[in-house]
Amino acid sequence: MYYSIIIILFILLTIASLTRKSKKEDREVLIIAHRGASGYAPENTIAAFDEALRLGADFIELDVQLSKDGEIVVIHDLTVDRTTNGKGEVRDYTFSELQKLDAGSWFHPKFRGEKIQSLDAVLDRYKGRTGFFIELKNPALYPGIEEKLAETLKRHNLHKDGDVVIQAFEKASIKRCKAILPEIQTGVLIKFTVKGISNEQLLKLSEFTDFINPNKQLVNKRLVKRVHHYGMKIAPYTAKDRASVQFLLHAGVDGIVTDYPDYIVKN
């Protein structure tokens, strides 16, 4: 009788353990490749995006601005200085001029010839293969960029599904995007501040956004729970080492923006 009870208890504990493990493993964490797999290839280029897909990213994160002639182009900085062999502000170049720049050699000579891409070209190449976190960079400098982005997404039939998240640090820009495309997912990026993020801020943000994407230094389990309480998801930026990835996974985030997609191993 005694041994039977022990065996039953052992079985029950084993089942409970497996159930807990299953629940943990079933939780999907989005792998969001920061400017592509930018730890391995020059950011915001085809090489980085291709590598991100090879490494299993669920989304590629990319930055958009407008060229002089109104093309939506994929580049992070206000100027072309850091990531190309050119000089000057992005908005002072036509798209044709931007495409003549070398956007790969700065990272490594083997990437010589990588080009600044149009958003159209990126969507054409990767639609149906991965999702997109599209960040509006410096939107105040580009009046009407929200409308142009909406038109582009509509052309590619990406304005209604869950494959796109439009994000920015500027809340006004995200509000405009949501007004133009009510069904699109949006995200607000939040810089680090010692004050953190208040419940009042979260309540206001929940009125027009779906994701809160803060600097990873702001994240802890309590913040994740509060974000979820207000009906939003959280995808912090930017994990550049395995320790940061593990910390964010333990905190229970919904997605992780990382230069190294292979650092996030799904069960």
Rank of each mutant, 00 (worst) to 15 (best):
residue 6 I to K: 14
residue 121 A to T: 06
residue 164 V to F: 01
residue 24 K to W: 10
residue 50 D to I: 02
residue 242 R to E: 09
residue 78 L to Y: 12
residue 147 E to D: 12
residue 174 I to D: 01
residue 192 F to Y: 15
residue 20 R to Y: 11
residue 78 L to A: 13
residue 249 L to P: 09
residue 42 P to G: 05
residue 255 G to P: 05
residue 111 F to Y: 14
residue 136 L to C: 01
residue 74 V to T: 00
residue 173 S to D: 04
residue 170 E to D: 10
residue 145 I to V: 15
residue 171 K to S: 15
residue 42 P to K: 04
residue 104 G to D: 10
residue 251 A to G: 07
residue 72 I to E: 00
residue 73 V to L: 05
residue 54 R to N: 13
residue 209 T to A: 09
residue 142 Y to S: 00
residue 196 G to P: 07
residue 78 L to G: 07
residue 245 V to T: 13
residue 37 A to H: 02
residue 226 R to C: 08
residue 214 P to L: 06
residue 255 G to D: 05
residue 99 Q to V: 05
residue 120 D to P: 03
residue 12 L to N: 08
residue 90 V to Y: 02
residue 51 E to W: 07
residue 3 Y to G: 08
residue 96 S to V: 15
residue 242 R to W: 05
residue 57 A to Y: 04
residue 136 L to G: 00
residue 24 K to N: 15
residue 168 A to S: 15
residue 54 R to V: 14
residue 157 N to P: 06
residue 207 E to W: 07
residue 159 H to Y: 13
residue 46 I to V: 12
residue 97 E to P: 09
residue 206 S to E: 09
residue 162 G to N: 12
residue 74 V to P: 00
residue 100 K to M: 13
residue 193 T to D: 11
residue 206 S to R: 09
residue 23 K to S: 11
residue 171 K to Y: 10
residue 191 K to P: 10
residue 257 V to W: 01
residue 187 G to S: 12
residue 129 R to L: 09
residue 153 L to G: 03
residue 87 K to P: 08
residue 1 M to W: 08
residue 196 G to M: 08
residue 102 D to M: 11
residue 15 I to C: 11
residue 193 T to Q: 09
residue 249 L to D: 07
residue 176 R to W: 05
residue 9 L to I: 12
residue 143 P to R: 05
residue 23 K to H: 11
residue 258 T to I: 14
residue 14 T to W: 15
residue 96 S to H: 14
residue 221 K to V: 13
residue 37 A to Y: 02
residue 161 D to S: 12
residue 109 P to G: 08
residue 195 K to F: 14
residue 213 N to G: 05
residue 124 D to L: 01
residue 218 L to E: 06
residue 120 D to M: 04
residue 82 R to L: 07
residue 146 E to N: 06
residue 184 I to Y: 04
residue 227 V to A: 07
residue 76 H to T: 06
residue 136 L to V: 00
residue 176 R to T: 09
residue 174 I to N: 02
residue 232 M to L: 09
residue 202 L to T: 08
residue 65 Q to Y: 03
residue 131 G to Q: 03
residue 146 E to S: 06
residue 210 D to H: 10
residue 108 H to E: 14
residue 155 R to C: 04
residue 6 I to Q: 12
residue 194 V to T: 12
residue 222 R to L: 14
residue 221 K to S: 15
residue 189 L to I: 13
residue 130 T to R: 01
residue 119 L to R: 01
residue 128 G to V: 05
residue 20 R to C: 11
